[in-house]
């Protein structure tokens, strides 16, 4: 099952609604990069509100996606990281250093606009 990527003005909007398995995650990485290339989007918001479990592989993929998007000139904001997920990430020692984060989709879009405006 593929994850839908929606275009919203000059941004891309991704909402991940179910737990990712490894194959889906890699597929998503590829899809997103293609989409950024296609639409020449300036920003991406990835919303993971519905995910309450994450493993190191998925976390790595997410981090990679962010770095890759950055290389392609799109800023990424990850929104809606659940407390449990945050704790897991920290405990796994995964520091998503250069990732922008926001509480929810709304705030994420605001933040992205702000970043792009600068």
């Amino acid at each position: 099952m593929r994850i839908p990527i929606l275009k919203l003005y000059d941004c891309l909007l991704v909402s991940i609604q179910w737990e990712l398995d490894d194959a889906t995650a890699l597929q998503f990485q590829e899809d997103l990069l293609h989409k950024i290339h296609q639409t020449s989007a300036n920003g991406v918001v990835i919303d993971i509100t519905s995910i309450d479990f994450i493993d190191s592989f998925i976390a790595k993929v997410l981090g990679d996606v962010v770095s890759m998007s950055k290389l392609m000139g799109a800023k990424v904001v990850i929104t809606g990281i659940q407390p449990a997920v945050a704790i897991t990430l920290i405990e796994l020692g995964i520091v998503l250093d250069d990732v922008l984060t926001a509480l929810d989709l709304e705030k994420g879009l605001e933040k992205l606009q702000q970043e792009l405006g600068d």
Partner: peptide
């Protein structure tokens, strides 16, 4: 530091 890092991840 861990707590601060986690807070940043949830977007605050």
């Amino acid at each position: 530091i861990q707590a601060a890092e986690a807070v940043r991840l949830v977007g605050a």
